[in-house]
């Protein structure tokens, strides 16, 4: 922390520390709810608050029962031959949260691949200075991020019920790809800003085909932007529930949809256990994106000291 200059008056000194305190409180407001979920998910009682036993750190107040419930909820025979091979098979086949997770991963990964491929290609075109109607097209491509999800979902509901895409994986994947595309465009065009076009011109001059130039020159340089765009797209899909509610079939559960149902119907600390896992997941994602960002800055030589 920088030292206060010698000319600060006592009043300014008091204000400075008050200011730091205010900032600390705001930071607390930002992370406290997310971090509080973690200890609460180990509650032995079906409550959403800390019990007396938890506050006194009595081991009896804590349990893994809600994590256990994630696995066993929906299983045919959760109590028979626990941890045996058949038990795991049963969990893999029938556990509702695992079913939702499988769907979320299938939809998320497919939507990410689609969004990243189309988005990267378009971002390369958009970052060329000679691109016609650049601003208008950019405005259209970014708009799925701005237009309220409820409008997109309503439109898709009408469109899909006419075209037979309702209740299909393809339909959900296409919708989620659309929602993820703005993020890919934004991150990739941001990386392209620092891109030195003379490199690809040199490669072309030396006889490389455009595809080789993309594979050998462009892609490695913009890769950090592409990957962080892909992560954004994945998270968008992994967290999306409105479109799924509107166009998916009843058995096409995803994790957020299952959470949504759980919160609306029988709210149990299992939700908190799932939330804890998701928080850990987002910490991992955050770390990856930060590493990528620094790497990209280093590659482009604009790394601050």
């Amino acid at each position: 922390m920088a030292k206060l200059p010698a000319y600060t008056t006592p009043l300014e000194r008091v204000w400075h520390y008050t200011y730091l305190l205010i900032c600390a409180l705001i930071f607390l407001f930002l992370v406290a709810p997310i971090l509080l979920v973690m200890p609460l998910s180990f509650n032995a009682e079906p409550y959403f608050t800390f019990t007396q036993k938890m506050l006194t750190f009595d081991p009896a107040g804590f349990s893994m029962r809600w994590y256990d419930n994630i696995l066993t909820h929906g299983m045919a025979a959760p109590e028979i031959m626990r941890w045996s091979k058949n038990w795991w098979l049963d969990a893999w086949e029938n556990a509702q949260w695992l079913h939702a997770a499988k769907n979320s991963v299938i939809i998320g990964v497919s939507a990410t691949i689609l969004a990243t491929a189309l988005g990267t290609l378009a971002a390369m075109g958009l970052s060329r200075p000679e691109m016609p109607f650049r601003r208008a097209i950019m405005g259209l491509l970014i708009s799925p991020m701005i237009v309220p999800l409820i409008i997109t979902a309503t439109g898709l509901f009408f469109f899909y019920s006419k075209t037979g895409l309702a209740h299909t994986y393809i339909g959900i994947i296409m919708a989620h790809a659309t929602l993820g595309i703005p993020f890919v465009i934004i991150t990739v065009t941001a990386t392209m800003v620092g891109f030195d076009h003379s490199l690809s011109r040199a490669a072309l001059n030396l006889g490389a085909t455009p595809i080789t130039v993309f594979r050998e020159i462009t892609l490695p340089l913009i890769l950090p932007g592409v990957i962080s765009g892909a992560l954004f797209a994945f998270v968008t899909s992994f967290d999306e529930v409105v479109v799924v509610l509107f166009v998916a079939a009843f058995d096409q559960q995803t994790i957020p949809r299952q959470m949504w149902n759980g919160i609306r119907e029988q709210i149990s600390p299992t939700i908190l256990a799932v939330a804890t896992i998701l928080v850990i997941f987002s910490i991992l994602l955050l770390t990856t994106v930060e590493i990528l960002r620094r790497r990209s800055e280093k590659l482009r030589g604009i790394s601050p000291a």
């Binding site: 930002l30 997310i34 967290d239 959470m259 939700i271 987002s282 910490i283």
Partner: peptide, 12 residues
């Protein structure tokens, strides 16, 4: 961290 955390998790 909040930015990357699921909307439903934060609401929960």
């Amino acid at each position: 961290l909040p930015f990357w955390t699921s909307l439903l998790v934060r609401t929960t």
